[in-house]
């Protein structure tokens, strides 16, 4: 049963303010892909046998698989406005940059929840790890997703975003970071925690900034 309207703040009912923005975008984003990402975390937790998991194994599952969940969450943000609704969106009072950053933050928060869920569950089931895996895997995922998002915006399609990011992923897998230096994705699986993960975070934030600046301009260009 829905709450009486009087219980909802007036600004929210009118769709104003940060809370309204968050709620509307949360409703928009929390769809089948969020559910799928949640189910994948459950399946991974069942398959990886956490009771026998040490730090390196935990990092392996996190960096190689959990981090990939960001690719279900972030790149689709590039095409939410596809289909000729650009004129409508750009006439709104709220700047589209703000809306976009809000969506990115919501998706990033869900990624953080998924990562924490995976490691929290693993620890409960007996996994033994000390490395700060949750922030490390979260930053890895954020970088992968944000790069794919920016590439998808630039190339006007999700396929471009996925190609770029999987090229990076496979190259790191096969050459152990020989070509990517500090942006190596799997450093924790090698048993080391260093500041390299912060470079991935910086890259993610850079991609966010460029995407937020670029997307409204591209929508405008396509609309008019």
């Amino acid at each position: 049963m829905s709450a009486p309207l009087s219980a909802v703040p007036f600004s929210l009912r009118r769709g104003e303010g940060a809370a309204a923005l968050l709620i509307w975008n949360l409703r928009l984003l929390a769809g089948p892909l969020w559910l799928l990402s949640f189910l994948i975390v459950i399946v991974l937790s069942l398959f990886c046998n956490p009771s026998l998991m040490g730090a390196v194994d935990a990092a392996y599952w996190g960096e190689r698989f959990v981090a990939l969940l960001s690719l279900l969450l972030l790149p689709p943000l590039a095409l939410l406005e596809a289909g000729g609704i650009g004129e409508g969106l750009l006439s709104k009072k709220q700047r589209h940059e703000t809306v976009f950053v809000c969506r990115w933050l919501i998706s990033a928060a869900w990624l953080a929840v998924l990562t924490a869920l995976f490691y929290g569950g693993a620890a409960l089931m007996g996994a033994d790890f000390e490395l700060p895996l949750i922030p490390g895997v979260f930053m890895t995922g954020l970088a992968l997703g944000s790069v794919a998002l920016l590439a998808a915006i630039l190339l006007g399609g999700l396929s471009g975003g996925y190609i770029v990011v999987f090229a990076w992923y496979l190259l790191d897998w096969m050459t152990k970071g020989k070509w990517t230096g500090q942006l190596y994705l799997f450093s924790m699986s090698d048993g080391t925690w260093n500041t390299d993960k912060l470079w991935l975070l910086v890259l993610a934030l850079l991609c966010l900034a460029v995407s937020a600046w670029l997307l409204p301009r591209l929508i405008k260009k396509r609309a008019f």
């Binding site: 009118r14 769709g15 923005l21 928009l28 769809g31 406005e81 289909g83 969106l89 589209h96 999700l158």
Partner: peptide, 18 residues
Amino acid sequence: FGFRRRQAGRLVKNGSEG
């Protein structure tokens, strides 16, 4: 890759502070 009408409706309504 398409969004259903309900989602499209939300998109247009999204940030309807304008």
